[in-house]
């Protein structure tokens, strides 16, 4: 795995908002085929980091290479080629409210790829069913679905173009424990069958233990530690100890041993 070129390579990333330094010389590398978790306390810049990688937010300085393409200086065409290869699940789902679930999943295919209608529909339907949505949810509008089903529909849209890289922003937030566990399992399954590389920003300790291969802990504007969960929780940095040593952290650790 280490001999291959990394999928994401971030170097010396810096950004500040109205004087507040959110990232200071942050470095991060994501290898092909791994599931990387990103954690950190509130305000540690997790979402900002994700937005920077997705080019929704321009960093002040530093380099972000995704699929070996320098995004900060990339031409619109080069950026388009990269965007075609990743999928994103947003925290608030960001489903198009005026389209049904099927139309939501069809949208990227219709926009990006020339396909016959029935092929496109079959492929969209394949993804919708693979995320565990029932057939009768297909023609419903997002507002008619429960929170967990909306998450799944958004995930179906994110994977519909068979991305190599999948970003998940707080995938289990706002779900009941049962749905959250279901979603965790779904992510693991999709990752192994479709050969995805997954970057997951989350607070959910169970997700971190169950899904991730490595976890990057953000704090003080940089990555304080990046390691597998069992090693990360033993790291001596006070911020990391504080994060994982609460009653919830210990319970999650015990449950996943």
């Amino acid at each position: 795995m280490t001999t291959q070129k990394p999928i994401i390579e971030i170097k010396n990333l810096s950004i500040k908002f109205s004087g507040l330094k959110v990232h200071q010389n942050l470095d991060l590398t994501v290898q092909k085929g791994e599931v990387l978790g990103i954690v950190g306390g509130s305000g540690s810049g997790k979402t900002t980091l994700l937005r920077e990688i997705l080019m929704l937010q321009r960093p002040d300085a530093g380099s972000i290479r995704v699929f070996d393409c320098e995004l900060t200086t990339a031409s619109p065409q080069a950026l388009l080629a990269v965007q075609r290869r990743w999928g994103v699940l947003f925290q608030q789902n960001a489903l198009f409210s005026s389209l049904t679930v099927l139309e939501n999943a069809l949208f990227p295919i219709e926009e990006k790829i020339l396909l016959e209608d029935d092929t496109a529909q079959a492929l969209a339907l394949q993804k919708i069913l693979s995320v565990g949505l029932p057939l009768d949810a297909v023609n419903k509008y997002p507002a008619q679905l429960s929170g967990g089903m909306q998450k799944r529909a958004a995930l179906a849209r994110a994977i519909v173009l068979d991305p190599e890289l999948l970003f998940l922003d707080e995938p289990t937030t706002g779900l009941d424990p049962d749905s959250a566990t279901g979603l965790d399992e779904l992510i693991i399954n999709l990752q192994s069958t479709m050969g995805l590389t997954v970057v997951v920003v989350t607070h959910d300790l169970d997700t971190l233990w169950r899904v991730t291969d490595r976890v990057a802990f953000l704090g003080e504007g940089k990555v304080l530690c990046i390691d597998a969960m069992p090693n990360l929780v033993r790291h001596s940095h006070p911020l990391i100890q504080e994060f994982f040593k609460g009653p919830r952290g210990r319970a999650a650790e015990k449950a996943n041993e």
């Binding site: 099927l102 029935d118 529909q121 079959a122 339907l125 394949q126 993804k127 069913l129 693979s130 057939l135 009768d136 297909v138 023609n139 069958t193 479709m194």
Partner: peptide, 16 residues
């Protein structure tokens, strides 16, 4: 992947 595709063989006509 093949067995993944096999599980999801509904077509558009199956949608109620």
């Amino acid at each position: 992947l093949l067995s993944f595709a096999e599980k999801q063989t509904h077509s558009y006509a199956d949608i109620p």
